[in-house]
Design a protein around this nucleic acid. Structure first.
Length: 996
RNA sequence: GGACGCUUAGCUCAGCGGUAGAGCACUCCCUUUACACGGGAGGGGUCACAGGUUCGAACCCUGUAGCGUCCA
């Protein structure tokens, strides 16, 4: 096969994707041998297409999987996607609103959920397609989805067990409430807008103190109805005597305590006193958690009107209530003043109405330690029906997850991220798992409210209802509302039975992280004891981003330990983050991201992969300045900061001036403007490298006439052969070591430098002097074989193409004994070489030769000698001469010399250009070719440079503290260097004199 | 407000105790039969700032400033 002049990534990608798929290389068989190596993909959200962060993350996983597969491990890379609860529902709701002008309530639950499933099908296909284009070698047959039947089974089982064991309980929580849509919304579904509002100051009378009032200010007077305390700073002298007394809440007649709390009250701000409304303000809620004795009162209905029980205010809309409450204070003479003020107010992204902090009933998973005296049921005022042997004991879920990391069973790379994980878990905050959404796993709990506790007990016992349900049904009583909750393990006959008794299923669904928390074992079939679960669990490495260490990583560890009894993975590798050109994270709202498919289209998948691998360094976040390639004329338009204030939908090309839409993960096809592709020059090195490998192979293949495989004998090797094989062996070792500790950037750099700067720049050039030498052919082929293996995990497409081409001419190859090459590099053995091939003295001989040749080239360049015939005479020791002599053909070839001699007796020619090092003095007679004055100037500068170095070292050696304290070998090294440099100065001074 | 990270050549980044490196960009030379997505050579940095530890600091410690991310 003849190789084209340049690498064509598109052809290769298409070809090898089909080939790998047809061969089934990526399908994991638990029955086959080999130590298991497993990665579960962090399932991408089906909200939209993948961005560069995903490309980075998945490329790194693929590098690991491909490397381990080559090592002979039984590899499984489990793919799949996440339903991403609120994010996906919100996207589809917005779409429905745009296209049909309907809310989800207009559509109804069933129709809405169906629309989301349609969306999911579309984007799942797109995401999986993107992953394949990247080259991800997942076991596609096993693709899972967090809402599919397999995952649903695991979710149901987990919920049931946690409910039974008392980890799941009903509790209160302050949520962001959208009063129009009557749902809670996540923090990232809100935005803040500055709104004209007021800043009122009022006073409450202090009980029992005649005519003493206490003043406070608020921006939300209507919430005074729900006040349960006033709060001052503990160090505030003004209020010292009032703390512990009570004030009168005038609208309700309640007596509320005056408390001291250093976190809530700021003595510098306003009067230094604030009202506390725990049910309607997050800060006040936190204060209540510190002072639970003050109580918590909900004063609002879900629709934003005032709740029953507040007299004349009940039923009023929150705005009307505000007026009424203020009017009453004025009437009572308790109003002090009002200032107009701009208030930052949270709004719901979906209804564009103001958010209310709202207290609601939610399901929680208890994270703290358990003990027999105060299990989670007691804390929540809930009685469970399980008091048996399965009742949990301390430590709790958070603790066992922490222990997994502190004990070293789960290891973070880089290590410092363990702190993020441990700090968060140490708070042991209970996990709110219910969401008021339709898209997700519906909570498998049926509830019924009774008149009192006796009615519940009567219901359960007198009529024996509990026993009718039998196993697979668990009970909890919520005492504060007299509600009986029943959890069913499966939607079987009992569901109808319960509903017949008047129970209704919760409308809520589970937090999306509940199902993704199970991902490492649910995808393997748990709770069934499948062969996959036995073979591939615990998984080996999790590759994920740092912002979900708490939300996801920690929860996988605790559910893994709780469900399976073992950690979900041994290593957690945290990836760098890709930033835009201004150091800010890429996000959809900013529109500063890039579609990996654009990058693949412009540079090729190998280049994209090489690019992201090489920016995966230990600590750095990587900036990636993006340009938009004009769809009209192809000019690159750098993305500017102003394009990021809101999404820029239209740009004008700096070249042709025509309008286009910038690149980005647009959800809609834009009928008006063509869309630009994203480009970034960070992918050029990878593209160039792929092409370099391609052409190096092309050259080798052109020179393999009469190739015969044979075992190599390093003793019979020429210097250059021993050198390149030594370098290959060293490189293979270093690459393996870097992969083992997830130093991805080192991996790409090591391969690049070896292949380009050593193999191509030197060995291949040297090989041109011995084209038909069979030994040289074997070395060329063997080194190329090694490079292709090493490069394959990073750049699989180009590696596979070249492997195929090489296989046609040299199917048997390699060191030290040639072997028949595997049919594809992706299943070839990972290269390892005997240590005996590593030869450092040969490496230094070549380094000396390189130094000499560079010197010759510099002289040529400096004096514009171009191709003038030159000769080289090198004065050096016998030992050095012995090393240089066999390299003479290369020295003359690479230096374009007509003659070369070396040895101790060589004499220095007159008017010569010189290259002086510690090991040799090389001379090129240049009489008549150069300006002696210019050469003299050059030498003078060299002498000055060396003198400067010498001065520094002399100063050091003159300092007795240095001589005394520095390690002897460092001092000796300095002395040697001084001697060497002094000799150079001496020689150069002589040369200078000889010039004229 | 807390935690973590970053600040090194024009740009993007390595280096993490023994007096600075790469890729791109730049300058000069080269259409040499693998590659111009190339070859050869060169210029360019008081390693954010201020203290400290050390014989010696880009690298360790403390503080300051700016930037970023996550959590409140």
């Amino acid at each position: 096969m003849e190789l084209a002049k340049a690498y064509e990534p598109k052809d290769a990608q298409q070809k090898w994707l089909a080939f790998w798929d047809a061969k089934g290389y990526f399908h994991a068989d638990p029955a086959k041998g080999g130590e298991a190596y497993t990665i579960v993909i962090p399932p991408p959200n089906v909200t939209g297409a993948l961005h560069m962060g995903h490309a980075l993350n998945n490329t790194l996983q693929d590098v690991l999987i491909r490397w381990r597969r080559m090592q002979g491990r039984n590899t499984l890379w489990m793919p799949g996607t996440d339903h991403a609860g609120i994010a996906t529902q919100a996207v589809v709701e917005r779409l429905v609103m745009q296209t049909e002008k309907k809310t989800r309530h207009d559509l109804g639950r069933e129709a809405m959920v169906q629309k989301i499933w349609d969306w999911k099908d579309k984007y799942e296909a797109r995401i999986l397609g993107q992953l394949k284009q990247i080259g991800a070698s997942c076991d596609w047959q096993r693709t899972r989805f967090t809402l599919d039947d397999t995952c649903a089974r695991a979710v149901r089982e987990t919920f049931f067990r946690m409910f039974r064991d008392g980890y799941i309980y009903r509790g209160k929580r302050l949520v962001n409430w959208d009063t129009q849509l009557q749902t809670s919304v996540a923090d990232d579904e809100t935005y803040t807008e500055t709104t004209k509002g007021g800043f009122w100051t009022f006073k409450y009378p202090v009980i029992g103190e005649h005519d003493i009032h206490i003043q406070f200010s608020t921006t939300r007077p209507e919430t005074m109805l729900g006040d349960t305390a006033l709060c001052v700073h503990p160090d505030d002298e003004r209020y010292k005597t009032l703390v512990g007394q009570y004030a009168l809440q005038p609208h309700t007649g309640r007596q509320i305590p005056i408390i001291a709390d250093g976190q809530l009250a700021d003595p510098e701000l306003g009067t230094g006193c604030v009202k506390v409304t725990p049910a309607h303000d997050p800060n006040d809620y936190a204060c209540w958690q510190r002072h639970p004795e003050i109580g918590i009162i909900n004063m609002m209905n879900p629709d934003g009107t005032i709740a029953p029980g507040f007299g004349e205010y009940s039923g009023l809309d929150r705005a009307k209530a505000r007026e009424a409450v203020v009017a009453k204070m004025e009437e009572l003479g308790l109003f002090v003043d009002k200032q107009d003020r701009d208030i930052p107010l949270p709004y719901s992204d979906r209804s564009k109405t103001p958010i209310e902090p709202f207290l609601s009933d939610q399901w929680f998973v208890k994270m703290g330690d358990m003990d027999s005296a105060s299990g989670p049921r007691e804390r929540a005022g809930v009685d469970g029906n399980n008091q048996g042997a399965n009742a949990p004991r301390s430590p709790g879920l958070a603790q066992i997850a922490m222990d997994a990391v502190t004990s070293g069973k789960v290891k973070f790379f880089p290590e410092r991220y363990a702190k993020t994980y441990l700090d968060w878990l140490a708070e042991k905050r209970d996990w709110c798992i219910s969401r008021q959404l339709w898209w997700g796993h519906r909570i498998p709990v049926w509830s019924k409210t009774f008149t009192d506790a006796a009615a519940i007990s009567d219901f359960l016992n007198t009529s024996g209802k509990k026993f009718i349900l039998g196993e697979g049904a668990e009970f909890q009583t919520q005492t504060d509302t007299n509600t009986l909750h029943v959890c069913l393990l499966a939607d079987d006959d009992r569901k109808a039975t319960l509903e017949g008794w008047g129970f209704t299923q919760s409308e809520d669904v589970l937090d999306t992280w509940f199902s993704s928390a199970l991902w490492p074992h649910s995808t393997l079939g748990w709770p069934e004891q499948t062969p996959e679960l036995k073979r591939y669990y615990p998984t080996s490495t999790l590759v994920t981003s740092r912002d979900i260490i708490t939300l996801w990583v920690a929860r996988m560890v605790l559910t893994g330990l709780y469900n399976v009894g073992d950690i979900p993975f041994h290593h957690v590798y945290i990836t760098p983050k890709i930033m835009d050109g201004f150091g800010e994270g890429m996000s959809k709202s900013k529109g500063n991201g890039a579609d990996p498919l654009d990058i693949i289209d412009l540079y090729g998948a190998d280049a994209m992969r090489y690019g992201v691998v090489s920016l995966a360094t230990e600590t750095q976040d990587a900036r990636m300045p993006i340009s938009n390639i004009c769809p009209h004329c192809g000019v690159a338009n750098p993305q500017k900061k102003e394009h990021q204030s809101g999404r820029t939908k239209k740009m004008n090309c700096s070249g042709c001036k025509k309008a286009f839409r910038p690149s980005g993960p647009w959800l809609d096809e834009d009928p008006e403007l063509p869309t630009a592709k994203a480009a970034s020059d960070r992918f050029e090195p990878g593209r160039n490298f792929a092409n370099k490998l391609w052409n190096a192979t092309r050259f080798i293949l052109m020179n393999l006439n009469g190739y015969t495989p044979a075992a190599i004998d390093p003793k019979a090797f020429t210097t250059e052969d021993r050198w390149i094989v030594s370098r290959l062996a060293t490189t293979a070792k270093a690459v393996t070591a870097a992969l083992e500790v997830y130093k991805f950037a080192d991996v790409s750099k090591l391969i690049y430098e070896f292949a380009w700067s050593e193999f191509c720049d030197w060995y291949i050039e040297m090989s041109k002097a011995r084209r038909s030498d069979p030994a040289c052919q074997r070395v060329l082929v063997g080194v190329l074989d090694g490079i292709l293996r090493l490069v394959h995990p990073v750049m699989p497409f180009v590696a596979e193409s070249l492997w195929e081409a090489l296989g046609e001419v040299a199917p048997e190859r390699g060191f030290p004994t040639p072997k028949k090459a595997e049919e594809a590099v992706c299943i070839a053995a990972w290269p390892t070489y005997p240590d005996e091939l590593i030869d450092t003295s040969t490496e230094s001989a070549i380094a000396r030769m390189q130094e000499m040749i560079r010197g010759v080239r510099e002289l040529r360049n400096r004096y514009s000698l171009d191709k003038a015939p030159l000769t080289l005479a090198v004065k050096c020791s016998d030992a050095v001469a012995k090393q240089l002599t066999p390299l003479a053909p290369f020295i003359t070839q690479l230096g374009m010399l007509t003659a070369f001699e070396c040895g101790p007796t060589v004499t220095k020619p007159k008017q010569a250009g010189s290259i002086v090092t510690g090991d040799f003095e090389a001379y090129i007679p240049l009489a008549g070719l150069i300006d002696p004055a210019a050469e003299a100037k050059r030498i003078e500068k060299q002498i000055a440079d060396i003198r400067k170095q010498l001065d520094g070292m002399a100063k050091k050696l003159g300092d007795e503290k240095y001589v005394k304290n520095a390690p002897p070998e460092v001092v000796a090294e300095t002395r040697e260097k001084v001697a060497e440099l002094e000799k150079q100065v001496e020689v150069l001074t002589g040369n200078l004199a000889d010039l004229t």
